[in-house]
Design a protein around this nucleic acid. Structure first.
Lengths: 411, 411
DNA sequence: GAATTTTTTGGGGATTTTCACAAAAAGGTT
DNA sequence: AACCTTTTTGTGAAAATCCCCAAAAAATTC
């Protein structure tokens, strides 16, 4: 067979038609996906298939566990690097039989993938050449879809920003927008924000888009990017334990950004669950508040991702202002600071660690790297010097608050 | 001797002169006091005396322990009831030798007392008659002092109110007022407020005035009455432990109001220590804030008398407002309330008591009248139902705050 | 009304915490 | 250097807390 021979130099109306054509030429089942592993088309003339393909077709996307495996094992990274076909050995644990994949390129961007299953026959080098021709032939068709989608995405973004900034304050208007964008608004939603260390580049955007679209944990309604923040609107319908889901998703997303794209130190936060789309501004502000507090108390709020869990840190802006206006000073803390300064000891730190450790002497002693009796002695001194009664929850609470407020003020 | 005979029907310039006259007639040392046991005059012709009298003259008032003893043992109550002379047996423990006292009356009000010491001779019935005549003769003179004092007190009051309400905002002006009232302003001061259960009657006023003036623990600079509140400005100079002193004084005052005059349930509060007289308004407002919180959390703040010690309760006005505007609700608390309602249990109450008891299971179990294991079981349920982690101080603190806020809201 | 679940109470042993005491180390003063 | 105070660490016994099990009581469900 001549390498010049190109059976794909023909016009076709739909991608499905084209998938069938490839299938006929290569004598095996074929599927075409976009860059986010969404199913675009699949051949129907061949009935042989494998579980992974069935799931992909049923769900109109490649199952997440399959994507994960293909990432881990290197197929997808390879496809994103080369224009050559890649052979994948069968992986029974995810229901994948032997197959060959090729990426579809336009300039230096991957638009999608073609998969050919090697169920009865193994593809030859010639078949590989044909596959490359098929990939080349399909790119323009894909590009059309892509640009159409881009325009749509712009409208999505505009709508999302209007929602976030409270520019749509009429339920009917909001419904209308959803309808015109062909989105069914979920009855409950949450806003997620991922804060990046640096501004998000357009290359990052692709990774983000890819991750969001391939994720199958949460339904992403809308998302947009603002400097170093990725803002996402997700549906929270039909979950027993929404916050757990949100946390799982956040960790998954940040984990994959790190593993796959080397983008580390993302800070995920999310709002509470809302039902009223006019309150999306509140949700967004919640997330910003959490980010702001997390910036100031990174250690204390390490495992806190939402406003609800912030606990007393919710109050800090307010409290600081109060303290400023009334010129109040915690008597005990002042005494302890004075003592620390005079004898360069560290009673204040000791107190803070002790309170952080929920009054547990052993834990606190470990955290401070001192003997438990040492801590005991210090606590006795603290209660003497600072006139603190460690049996009084009110006193301790105020101390804790004022301790943290000092830090807050200091930053 | 004829009962008509009256050696005191004579004019005299000063009270001291009159005291000497009585002393001459009765052949014993004499002192005259006002209703608040302030020394008004004393005889000098006789050198015999006792330690109590010496202290009285030196301090220009009867020592507090002597007054206390005379109250306890019934002399003063008797003097306030009858116009007859009362004999007091000697009380070595307070340096008091035998003496006779008589109260000086104007209408139904006691203006003061005359004391005659029975050092060498015991007074006869005739002497008693003479003493009554002396008391009668001196009353007009005392009345003059009284009215002069009243006018002065009115000026005091006016000045005090101006200070409290911030109508004097110029240090020079304030100093001037102090000077013109012949008060040396202390360099540090505090405002005390005693809240009565009912509006203060003019009869109560006399008791108050008496107690304030006879007290020797704190130096009272100014005081005034506003409906059911007694407002006092005290000097806090020269104390090591000011707050302890203030507390002692408060308890003393409320105790004596109860014991002596049957006026119960006074609520004492006091401000912090201030140095700047322009900030007296702040001090006053502090006390009012404490009273307001104490009204809402009587049990929790039972032993709290000043703003400083209020701890987290300082923040409640602010927090409540925040909660209202943001429409936040504590998730755990809501869950627990729901459970309580459904199973008519009392998990919320259990939680509150437990937190009040500083996480001490035994104390809390006692307070709840249940077995410690029952409480343990309930706490396990609480942590399950409310998703509370009892090792997390932040969570617990927020729970505590929200619990108390609920109550605050409820009232 | 029987069966099941939830709640309360009790016992008792393992584990921790608490506390007093003492020795040693560290820091400061004269 | 000698002396004192403060701080740290160690030890061990008493006290308390924690935790498991089980039985009984109460409430709920079927």
């Amino acid at each position: 067979m001549n390498t010049r021979y190109d059976p794909f130099k023909t016009s076709f109306d739909s991608l499905d038609e084209f998938a069938d054509l490839i299938s006929q030429v290569l004598q095996c089942p074929v599927t075409i996906e976009d860059a986010n592993h969404r199913l675009l088309a699949y051949s129907t003339h061949d009935e042989r298939t494998d579980p992974a393909r069935v799931s992909t077709i049923i769900g109109r996307r490649v199952p997440e566990k399959v994507i994960n495996q293909l990432w881990k094992e290197g197929t997808i990274p390879a496809l994103l690097k080369t224009k050559e076909p890649i052979r994948v050995k069968n992986m029974d644990e995810i229901g994948l039989s032997h197959r060959v994949a090729i990426s579809i390129w336009k300039h230096d961007e991957v638009l999608g993938f073609i998969w050919a299953l090697e169920i009865d026959r193994t593809l030859t080098d010639e078949d590989f050449t044909l596959l490359k021709k098929a990939a080349d032939a399909v790119k323009n068709k894909l590009l059309q879809l892509q640009t159409r989608k881009n325009k749509k995405e712009e409208r999505f973004q505009e709508f999302f920003w209007k929602l976030l900034t409270g520019h749509l304050n009429n339920p009917a208007e909001i419904s209308e927008h959803f309808y015109s964008l062909q989105i069914t608004p979920p009855s409950s939603f949450a806003v997620l924000v991922f804060q990046f260390q640096e501004n998000i580049t357009s290359q990052d955007e692709q990774s983000i888009s890819y991750l969001l679209k391939t994720n199958q944990r949460l339904k992403i309604i809308l998302y947009t990017i603002d400097c170093n923040q990725l803002i996402v609107l997700v549906s929270t319908d039909n979950f027993d334990n929404v916050f757990w889901e949100l946390e799982q998703f956040s960790l998954l997303f940040t984990g994959k950004m790190a593993d796959r794209y080397g983008i580390y130190n993302l800070i995920p936060v999310y709002s509470g669950i809302y039902h009223d789309y006019q309150k999306i501004t509140n949700a967004y502000e919640e997330t910003l508040a959490v980010l702001s507090i997390k910036a100031k108390f990174p250690r204390e709020t390490k495992n806190i991702y939402n406003y609800h869990k912030l606990g007393i840190y919710q109050l800090f802006d307010l409290l600081l202002e109060k303290r400023k206006t009334e010129g109040y000073e915690n008597y005990s803390l002042r005494r302890l600071h004075q003592y620390d300064q005079k004898h360069n000891s560290n009673l204040v730190e000791t107190l803070e660690v002790f309170l952080n450790c929920d009054n547990n002497i052993n834990d606190a002693a470990k955290a401070l790297n001192v003997h438990a009796n040492t801590l005991n002695y210090r606590l006795k001194r603290i209660s003497e010097i600072g006139e603190v009664n460690f049996k009084d929850p009110n006193q301790k609470m105020m101390l804790f608050l004022d301790l943290k407020l000092e830090k807050y003020k200091g930053i």
